[in-house]
Design a protein around this nucleic acid. Structure first.
Length: 463
RNA sequence: GGCGCGGUAGCCAAGUGGUAAGGCCGAGCUCUGCAAAAGCUCUAUGCGUCGGUUCAAUUCCGACCCGCGCCUCCA
């Protein structure tokens, strides 16, 4: 089934296919800046891209999808953080990169094919800057920095529809820098001892030592790992301008070819109706939600429960809804498995296949979940072959959305187990007054005791 | 000011020129020492407002109202 996706550049939904003759789909997703934990707004973009990746793997074969996602390990924020903690930049970057990886794994995101770092590609960036300087697209400023000259690229603004004269003139970045034009942006930032500490590299010919600008890292890593022309470039909407606009300018001027054939931007996750951001302090991290008793997969579900191109307001209620919905899916799958008793050849199609079409149609994940639940609510078939096909298709849909159903059991403290056993014994002895008192104690301690005929289980109550 | 996204039930959220998927919450019933779980049933004559086109509009067009985002290093 062809995978169709909205293209931010042409503003239409287009079928994705590899442009290169080798049949490899080249896909780049702008990755995190590693100076603090990524918040779940960041992870909305990464989980959406993960679903896309899974669809591409299915469509083209996993070995024909090259998915590159970078790590930004040098920029203003990483340097500031390193200075604040009095640690080397590399140490800060490694710490937060490891944390990012752990969170991605918990959220069941596939690893990208390649995950390059900005500091690992200084030479590639310098090389591109030198070409841009030679071609007259970039210039050295008085302090030894290098800027891209946007008037040298007639196509500038095609993606964001922004015109040079529309740029605000009041921005502080303009005053602090040494560029000729408000729209010009830094390719290389000259070393400043007071800001940069010990972070610096040899610069492009004719420029001072220093560090690369933000935008050039993606252009350089794309060129190295995916080539001059790629099939798809993605990120959050906030990257559309200036980051992606600038990448286009740099790469096309340097390489003289088309850069990305398609663009995709996922919308923001909001919290309390406004953008989540580290500067506002109104953000949730994965850890903070896990501490409240929610599973990482419930977080993933909540992040994917809205259409990726629409803003999604994240609330603890929505997370609770996600948690309950996952339980329904888990129970349904168990019922399905139990119903399969005989060896039989699976039927060729299943009612759950209906959930795949919305996914392929511009990543309509909520639409797919709707189809999925519609079928979950229907009675189980009796035919063994049909049941087998249903299980297979159900699992495929869940795999594409990336919802792992294995329940992560909370660790039960010894005193809670002890209380529970006491209550069970009291109940068996028909001492209901004591049993009720003990249940109240368990509830107070944050645990629900669920009785069955043959025993009981304990569940942590959500905070 | 420029560019962009959106307003569908208590909450979240799909969708279509022909009369509103789904999730959560809630309610009722069955079951049950209690509490759950499970099963069954119910929950928008309505899709921001006002016009227009049409046999027919939540869907197309126009105007307006409201919310959010980006506008030089935010996913």
């Amino acid at each position: 089934m062809a995978v169709r996706l909205y293209d931010s550049l042409t503003r239409e939904v287009r079928e994705l296919k590899p442009a290169h003759k080798d049949g490899v789909f080249r896909f780049y997703n702008c990755g995190p800046t590693v100076y603090a934990p990524a918040h779940i707004g960041n992870f909305r973009t990464f989980t959406v891209n993960d679903v896309l990746r899974r669809l591409l793997d299915r469509e083209f074969g996993a070995s024909n999808v090259k998915h590159v996602r970078n790590i930004t390990d040098v920029d203003d924020r990483t340097i500031t953080q390193a200075k604040k903690e009095g640690k080397p930049l590399a140490e800060i970057a490694k710490f937060w990169t490891d944390k990012f990886h752990a969170d991605c794994e918990a959220l069941n995101c596939l690893k990208p094919t390649v995950e390059p770092t900005a500091t690992g590609h200084i030479k590639e960036q310098v090389d591109m800057i030198e070409v841009l300087m030679q071609k007259g697209n970039a210039y050295r400023s008085a302090d030894g920095s290098v800027y891209f000259k946007i008037t040298s690229f007639p196509g500038y603004g095609a993606l964001s529809r922004i015109k040079e004269r529309e740029l605000k003139v009041t921005n502080s970045a303009f005053d602090a820098d040494h560029k000729d034009d408000i729209g010009d942006f830094a390719l290389w930032k000259a070393y400043k001892p007071e800001d940069d500490g010990i972070v610096q590299w040899d610069g492009p010919k004719g420029a001072s030592s220093g560090r690369p600008g933000w935008h050039i890292e993606c252009s350089a890593m794309i060129k190295k790992h995916l080539g001059e022309t790629i099939d798809l470039h993605t990120g959050g909407v906030d990257l559309l301008f200036p980051h992606h606009e600038n990448e286009i300018a740099q790469s096309q001027c340097c390489n003289g070819t088309s850069f990305s054939l398609q663009w995709y931007h996922s919308e923001h996750l909001l919290v309390e109706g406004t953008t989540m951001s580290k500067s506002k302090g109104n953000y949730y991290t994965l850890d903070s939600l896990v501490q409240k008793g929610y599973s990482a997969i419930a977080v993933r579900y909540a992040l994917l429960a809205g259409h990726p191109r629409k803003q999604l307001n994240f609330t603890l209620d929505s997370l609770h809804a996600a948690d309950s919905a996952l339980k329904t899916l888990r129970d349904f799958r168990a019922k399905l498995v139990t119903a399969i008793k005989e060896a039989a050849a699976p039927a060729t199609s299943s009612r759950f296949d209906a959930a795949i079409a919305p996914l392929c149609d511009d990543l309509n994940i909520p639409g797919a979940l709707g189809k999925l639940f519609t079928e979950v609510n229907n009675p189980l078939p009796t035919d063994q072959g049909v049941l087998k096909a249903d299980l297979k298709s159900f699992d495929e849909v869940l795999h594409l959305i990336g919802l792992k159903l294995d329940e992560v059991k909370a660790k039960i403290p010894a005193e809670i187990s002890h209380l529970a056993q006491k209550r069970w014994d009291a109940k068996a002895a028909k001492n209901f007054a004591l049993a009720d008192t003990l249940r109240a104690e368990l509830t107070k301690a944050g645990w629900a005791m669920l009785d069955r005929k043959d025993g009981y289980s304990l569940e942590a109550l959500k905070q």
